[in-house]
Amino acid sequence: MKNNVFAQYDKLSKAFHWVTAIIVVIAFILGPGDFGRLLDEGIDPGTRIDIVWHESLGITVFTLTLLRLLWVAVRPAAPRIQMQSWMHLLGRLMHIALWGLLFSLPLTALLALGSESNPLTLLGGFRIDKLPFIAGSHLANLADWGDVHKLLGDTILWLAGIHALAALFHHFKLKDGVLSSMLPWQVKSK
């Protein structure tokens, strides 16, 4: 591929990827680790801007992931980069895990809020005080959904970090265009 541009994902796929990644990191940073204690002390989550932002970003991630999934179904073909089959398998498994977490994190948050009868508070003053369809469901008592949500939040950050390190390995060691295919700008091969 001398003097050629590496194969690229389409612009919308890149936008979905990077915007989602940025939002997940911000939501993680704003995630109140003491959420349960705050509620036990009678603090209204709507008065905490970090909680409002965290929950709003979570809903945004879920929406973006749904839209991204629809786009994947109709977009131009993804770049095919030559690599060993075990690398393809690990890459596919990583993507499946990340996609699963992008869907399950917002769902476990709603399960945590609903099972404990806590409000969902979003930017713009939007608030749902009770999520009775969750509180009354058999899912509500299957787990401590707040703990599950926290574990999944930690997991997505660890996996995203490994994903980023793998992309850097491909870029600097293998020079195969994996990272370049998803960068917002085009990179020429050497």
Rank of each mutant, 00 (worst) to 15 (best):
T121E: 07
K173D: 06
L165W: 06
S117K: 14
H149Q: 11
H171K: 01
A109I: 09
S117W: 07
L151C: 01
G153H: 01
L159N: 00
I134C: 09
L151W: 13
A143H: 15
L122H: 11
F133E: 10
L139K: 06
N141D: 10
L157S: 03
L131P: 02
V187L: 05
H138V: 13
S180I: 05
S180Y: 00
K173H: 12
W145C: 06
L123W: 14
L113H: 01
L174R: 13
I162H: 11
D147M: 13
S180M: 02
L174E: 09
L168H: 07
L174Y: 00
D144C: 05
A164M: 14
K188W: 11
N118T: 10
P132M: 03
P119I: 04
Q186V: 11
A112G: 08
T108S: 15
L179K: 00
P119H: 04
L122D: 03
L174C: 07
G125K: 10
K130G: 04
G146H: 13
S137G: 09
F172T: 13
S180R: 00
D129T: 15
K173V: 15
D154T: 07
L151E: 01
G153L: 03
L174W: 06
G114V: 00
K175Y: 04
A166G: 10
G146N: 14
N141V: 10
G125H: 07
A167W: 07
A109M: 11
L159D: 02
G124S: 11
